[in-house]
């Protein structure tokens, strides 16, 4: 194994493990908001790591004579997923709260409710 393949393998293993832990969180957490936490953090980092490793592999393929698409498009997809993941999860969290999905009964703090009460009192 060359040094490039070792770097790619480390990034890919970190990414796949993070992705699997995020999916496990989506399955096991008790609440929409907790599941959102697991999905956003772990799945975004997991896919970012895997796509970064594939980009390095694409650079190696480009130096061996393949198309330049294998370098540009994976890193473009990675940047797009890193930018849009938090935006989409923010939107769906606010939509879930405003459409009345209840919090987990053991939740200790609800700062959005305090904020809404402060806005209403103004």
């Amino acid at each position: 194994m060359t040094i490039v393949e070792i770097i790619v393998a480390i990034l890919v293993v970190i990414g796949v493990i993070f992705n699997f832990l995020g999916v496990l969180g989506i399955l096991r957490f008790p609440d929409v908001y907790n599941r959102l936490h697991a999905s956003t953090k772990c799945v975004t980092l997991g896919e970012g790591g895997v796509l970064l490793g594939l980009t390095i592999l694409g650079i190696k393929m480009y130096l061996a004579g393949a198309s330049i698409s294998f370098v540009i498009k994976p890193i473009l997809i990675m940047l797009f997923l890193l930018v849009t993941g938090p935006v989409a999860s923010h939107a769906i969290a606010r939509a879930a709260y405003k459409s009345g999905v209840p919090l987990w009964p053991k939740s200790v703090v609800d700062q959005y409710k305090e904020y809404l009460e402060k806005e209403a009192a103004k």
């Binding site: 599941r35 999860s89 769906i92 939509a95 879930a96």
Partner: peptide, 8 residues
């Protein structure tokens, strides 16, 4: 919202 959170 659960389904959307899992589908994303």
């Amino acid at each position: 919202p659960d389904r959307v959170v899992a589908m994303d």
